[in-house]
Design a protein around this nucleic acid. Structure first.
Lengths: 223, 223
DNA sequence: TGTCAGAAACGTACGTTGTACGTTGTTCGT
DNA sequence: ACGAACAACGTACAACGTACGTTTCTGACA
């Protein structure tokens, strides 16, 4: 209680709050992330957070931004298509580490680091062989693949972070009986069997090759 | 007030609630969708809803399911790749009509109609020329494109449904100054100029052609 | 036509959320 | 040593989802 109290906690700054938010969201899901819980986790009361962040929305934005900083950029000498590939894979890895992030990525305003993440992909596309129009479309095609794949991939993990996977599967099969939805159930089974691990990169390459081909078509037709 | 009251309202059933929810979400965004507001909109009190739906989550699920029923399936005689194309376009059109839906699609458990929507795409893929593995990957590639594209497309529309577009753009350009993020700002400008209207179908075709090519490669290598 | 059971609507109320506001404590430049 | 600036706290409030008990309506059968 005195000023010489040995267990004096560190004085709480923005980064610590953001880190705690990410930790909690990783562990329990972002759906149950609460200001009071974040504060508890740090040993403070809820309102203490507001000296360092302006709102919960601000916190979530900062959390997503922090995740963007985890995504390494390939070295500058890396050739464009390879760089895009690695960058996409690194982005997906980040979403694997933070399963709640993908679902928020698309519906939240980007902060500075996320903007840098966007800028990187666009800059590599700009120095690639793709024409400007294909580069624009390619940006979305790649982003959509990475984000969409990550979301679907962990939908089951995230939907209800609490209970086990089989409870989720059972609930789904209740509304989707095998006899009426055979393909859907077969597809789900393929996922549960887990022999789809290379499909992310496969479709990614499919898109990259397709972009190169489209650009070649477009520029040759124009010429 | 008496039993002969002329303005006697209709007695409130599940469908009416779901419709009201969709109407409100379309008009004001799903972020401010409230049980009390849905009830008000129908001329009832909040708790009356619970005679017909079991929870807010149930309502949202039903709303998304209702949107799935708006998506027409191409006629059975339609050849597979054409059917997939039309179906994807119809799905995106539905997301255009209901800007809030795409963001929830990926993080919500599908109901019966959404399951039918999934089943349709899988069934068409199954009767296409694609091998089973490519069909599996193609399902995700197509879904991710449609969903991801729709989300990004209306991110600005949805993020804050209240204020005008230029207020949003200004806020963004505050965290992303043109000199530090030239490509990002140029990309944004391309969107604001609106000459990207055909890119959805272009990338869609790119994916479909890519899938056909991958499948041909795979089956020829195996043979 | 009278009655009565079940469904539908209502009112009230509780726990939880984000956060505004006023107060207290702590730190640091002078 | 002292006062300003800032950090943490406690209290409090409005809005949310929804549990529960009560009232009102309706329609099947006597």
């Amino acid at each position: 209680m005195s000023t010489t109290d040995a267990s004096k906690r560190t004085p709480l700054d923005r980064d610590a709050i953001v880190r705690a938010g990410i930790e909690l969201a990783d562990a329990e899901g972002v759906g149950v992330l609460t200001m009071r819980r974040v504060a508890d986790h740090l040993g403070f009361k809820a309102m203490a957070l507001y000296n360092h962040i302006s709102s919960k929305e601000d916190l979530l934005k900062a959390m997503l931004d922090a995740i963007a900083t985890e995504i390494d950029e390939p070295p500058p000498e890396c050739e464009p298509m390879q760089a895009i590939r690695q960058h996409a894979i690194a982005t997906r890895d980040a979403f694997l580490r933070h399963p709640w992030a993908a679902g928020l990525w698309g519906v939240t305003m980007p902060g500075e680091s996320r903007t840098a993440h966007i800028e990187y992909l666009l800059s590599v596309l700009a120095r690639s062989d793709l024409d400007a129009e294909t580069a624009h479309d390619g940006f979305h095609a790649i982003n959509n693949h990475v984000l969409g794949y990550s979301m679907q991939e962990q939908a089951l993990t995230v939907l209800f972070a609490g209970r086990g996977i089989e409870s989720l599967v059972n609930e789904f099969q209740e509304t989707a009986p095998v006899d009426r939805f055979p393909h859907t159930n077969a597809h789900l089974q393929e996922h549960l069997d887990g022999n789809t691990s290379t499909s992310f990169e496969l479709v990614l390459d499919l898109i990259l090759e397709g972009l190169a081909r489209v650009s070649k078509d477009r520029t040759s037709h124009t010429a």
